[in-house]
């Protein structure tokens, strides 16, 4: 047992999960929590457009689900994909379409406060547009471009294939670009015109 405690941090995610499933090992669960909680919190923050309290609640709920549904985990598969699948499904079931955001008023407010505002406004609008994407587009976009998952990993998490993931990424980006093109910074537009 002493050896186990000493080396528990060296175990892989799947070995820790197996230990937790078979023996209800509290230490193994704690290590899993340490490894994943921060990243999951970041993921939920992105999914909820920076809403930290909601993201924290979701991290708690997700780990409670892991404890309750641990018998459903296939130890032959990767733990991260299982956890992010649960996380994505949680966002889907709790997802509420946000009310339309007045982008013009944002820009006017920010222009008064910050002199060089274009990039800041663009980022703000970009966040809002990502948040307003359809759920299946938003998940793949955030997992790919904000969380840096590979296409194969995203396909596993979303339980689809790589072709579907590429397609969703392509159309998600296209949707955002349609809505956001009027708010692109001036220097970018100039560059486009010169080209």
């Amino acid at each position: 047992m002493f050896v186990l405690k000493k080396n528990i941090n060296r175990l892989t995610d799947e070995e820790l999960m197996k230990l937790f499933i078979e023996k209800d090992h509290q230490g193994a669960f704690n290590v899993i929590y340490e490894r994943y909680s921060k990243r999951l919190l970041g993921y939920f923050i992105k999914m909820f457009n920076g809403d930290l309290p909601q993201a924290q609640d979701f991290v708690q709920d997700l780990f409670i689900r892991i404890v309750e549904k641990k018998h459903l985990f296939d130890t032959e598969k990767k733990l991260y994909s299982w956890i992010f699948t649960i996380a994505s499904n949680m966002c889907k079931t709790s997802f509420r379409k946000p009310s339309a955001i007045s982008l013009t008023s944002w820009k006017e407010t920010l222009e008064q406060e910050v002199p060089d505002i274009d990039k800041l406004v663009f980022k703000k609008i970009l966040r809002a547009e990502i948040y307003q994407l359809e759920h299946h587009h938003k998940v793949v976009f955030i997992l790919r471009h904000l969380e840096r998952f590979s296409l194969e990993e995203i396909a596993t998490i979303t339980e689809t294939n790589i072709g579907t993931v590429k397609s969703r990424l392509f159309y998600a980006t296209k949707t955002i670009s349609k809505k956001i093109k009027n708010y692109a910074p001036e220097d970018w537009v100039d560059t486009f015109k010169l080209g």
Binding site: G42, I45, K46, G50, F122, K123, L126, R127, I130, F141, H145, L146, R148, T173, I176, S177, I180
Partner: peptide, 9 residues
């Protein structure tokens, strides 16, 4: 859009 998304949050 893709390049700016990386450090949005």
């Amino acid at each position: 859009i893709i390049s700016e998304s990386a450090d949005l949050y």
